[in-house]
Design a binder for these strands. Structure first.
Length: 551
RNA sequence: GGCCUGUUGGUGAAGCGGCUUAACACACAUGCCUUUCACGCAUGCAUUCACGAGUUCGAAUCUCGUACAGGUCACCA
């Protein structure tokens, strides 16, 4: 019996042969230097920072070279599949603007190199596996789970390397007759690579990020087709990235140790491996040790965590860019008005070791990002946020659109804007007192400071309303009136004079202004009082002050 | 245990043989400015690049060893 015939018995029902598929997916016609990358997640739940980071780098590297970024779903382990994962992945990629040019998309598949879901490519993998069997580069293995355990135990006993290789790969030595007999007995089998590698040989792989990595050559007879007929990750990677003409495989560095396997597989298939870029993980520190950010253990690892907080997507992107390329921040400072997509990302600037996820830094970036936004954009984003997470805020924003925009505009659209909000969930905490619906004096705690005697407070408020407040005043007039008020009541209007001789006064204009501020908003710290007063208007000011005067 | 990788301040890190008495940013601290806060400005914050040895006129940068950390050794990706 020929090997070809054997391959047909081993993998029956294969529709096409390898040659057919090679012709189906010709070389891509791309400009010189264009990079083809992919993001190839398993559908196992929500997207976390590490995955987002990876997809960012992949899409960026492809797009800045005029290449292709595609999405492939690696669902060859059906036990681990989580429902709706693909939808979640797609949504996050879209929200962040890491749109795949090809592959699985919201409205079906796109591109000429599909299918892009591995479970739909079974025939392709089997065609390639048949080809390997035919060439004597792969063989069926009938080792059961128990057999493998026994081999492992024995290897441990004699201190040999663990694995199915060399003489340990017992099914390698089966005759065709024995193979046929086992099949007839209904024994299950997998297809393994018949490795011709030597562990004592060294191979060198040039990683785009980590540089040259020297490793022993693979001599393990890795499984390429599982007993359910689906490929292992390793084999699917080799076949898919060959057929889809991926130029750069960008993935987490937990994969570097399987590099020898992958190199061996590409060699068996007879094609040149793609370039590899293994990115270091984003970690957190726990009990003094670095630990990769985990989907299960770290809620702050979920991309959705930041949506709930109202951190703008752009800010997250900027943060990821600073982690990805150490020179990004410099560039961003130098080009404050540039589109961050114009930044040229480079593999050579990526860290070889893991980075600690720095929430403070993310928040700082977010704060700066929001501070530079025009008030109308802050409004739109806040509304979008409120619609999903805060309906009370949503109602207020809808009802008082222009008013809200005016609030956000206080000390905003200028060179050095205020930086009040880190995230959209901060907005209500910092502006609630501007809305009568949320301002109920009976329930408030007023944060009076130096001046807290209620008679004195009454006196200040009363005099201010009667004599010094005028809605028409511009800011400097308004401030001068406050100074006059201070003088009349024995508070220093000149801070320098006060500092030189504090005992000569009851206090100073700052103390007085705090009374006016707290009585109006209940808070000791607010944006510019003049602006707040202008927005609240005469009637509301009088109403809020009279609450104290009549108390 | 084998194989691979990494280790620069509280954090992200730059630097990759002399221009480094270690850049920049975040955080922190102090002061100034100021009607509060925030902003802004100024200053401070690693005598030293895990440790030890070696190469060199010269090392954070090259080599070796040690320690520590991470990854990986599946019919999971």
């Amino acid at each position: 019996m020929t090997l070809k015939e054997l391959s047909e018995i081993l993998l029956p029902n294969v529709e096409h042969d390898r040659k057919y598929y090679e012709e189906l997916y010709p070389e891509r016609n791309l400009p010189e230097g264009a990079i083809v990358t992919r993001y190839a997640p398993s559908p196992t739940g929500f997207v976390h920072m590490g995955a987002l980071y990876q997809s960012y780098i992949s899409s960026k590297m492809a797009h800045q070279t005029g290449g292709i970024f595609f999405l492939r779903i690696e669902d060859t382990d059906q036990k681990r599949e989580v429902e709706n994962s693909v939808e979640m992945i797609l949504k996050d990629l879209k929200d962040f603007g890491f749109n795949p040019d090809e592959g699985v998309t919201l409205d079906g598949e796109k591109g000429n190199y599909g299918p892009y879901t591995q479970s739909k490519r079974k025939d392709i993998y089997q065609a390639f596996a048949r080809d390997l069997i035919e060439k004597g580069l792969a063989y069926p293995c009938f080792l059961s789970e128990d057999d493998e355990k026994e081999i492992r135990d024995q290897q441990a006993r004699v201190k040999a390397r663990i694995g199915i290789y060399g003489d340990w790969a017992r099914s390698r030595f089966l005759t065709t007759e024995q193979v046929l007999e086992k099949i007839n007995n209904g024994e299950e089998y997998v297809i393994r690579l018949k490795s011709d590698g030597n562990f004592n040989n060294k191979i060198t792989v040039k990683d785009c990020i980590k540089g040259n990595i020297e490793m022993p050559e693979n001599d393990i007879d890795v499984v390429i087709i599982k007993s359910d007929g689906l490929p292992t990750y390793h084999f699917a990677h080799a076949v898919d990235d060959h057929l889809m003409h991926t130029t750069h495989v960008i993935r987490g560095d937990e994969w570097v140790s399987s590099l020898p396997t992958h190199i061996a597989l590409f060699k068996a298939i007879g094609v040149k491996p793609p370039k590899y870029a293994h990115i270091a993980p984003i970690s957190k520190i726990e009990n003094g040790n670095h630990r990769k950010l985990s989907k299960r253990k770290d809620p702050e690892a979920a991309v959705s965590y930041y949506s709930k907080l109202g951190i703008p997507k752009e800010a997250v992107k900027i943060y990821l860019a600073t982690v990805a390329n150490s020179n990004f921040e410099r560039w961003f400072d130098a080009n404050p008005n540039a589109d961050i997509n114009d930044f040229k990302m480079e593999f050579s600037k990526m860290s070889r070791s893991d980075s600690l996820f720095d929430q403070e830094k993310l928040y700082n970036i977010s704060r700066n990002y929001i501070s530079k936004l025009p008030a109308t954009v802050v409004y739109d984003s806040a509304l979008e946020y409120a619609k999903e997470y805060d309906h009370e805020l949503e109602e207020l924003l809808v009802k008082y659109k222009d008013y809200s925009i005016a609030i956000y505009n206080i000390e905003r659209e200028r060179k050095k804007p205020r930086k009040d909000y880190i995230m959209y969930s901060d907005i209500k905490n910092q502006t609630w007192y501007m809305y009568d619906e949320l301002f109920n004096p009976e329930e408030l705690e007023y944060e009076f400071a130096n001046i807290n005697d209620s008679e004195e407070i009454k006196k200040i408020l009363k005099l201010y309303l009667e004599k010094y407040y005028n809605e028409e005043d511009d800011e400097s007039t308004w401030f001068n009136r406050m100074k006059e008020l201070s003088d009349e009541l024995g508070y220093a209007s000149d801070m320098k004079a006060y500092r030189e001789n504090p005992d000569a006064y009851k206090g100073n204009v700052a103390d007085v202004s705090i009374v006016l501020r707290v009585a109006l908003t209940s808070k000791a710290q607010t944006p510019n009082l003049y602006n707040l007063m202008s927005l609240l208007g005469k009637d509301r000011i009088a109403k809020r002050y009279n609450y104290f005067i009549q108390k």
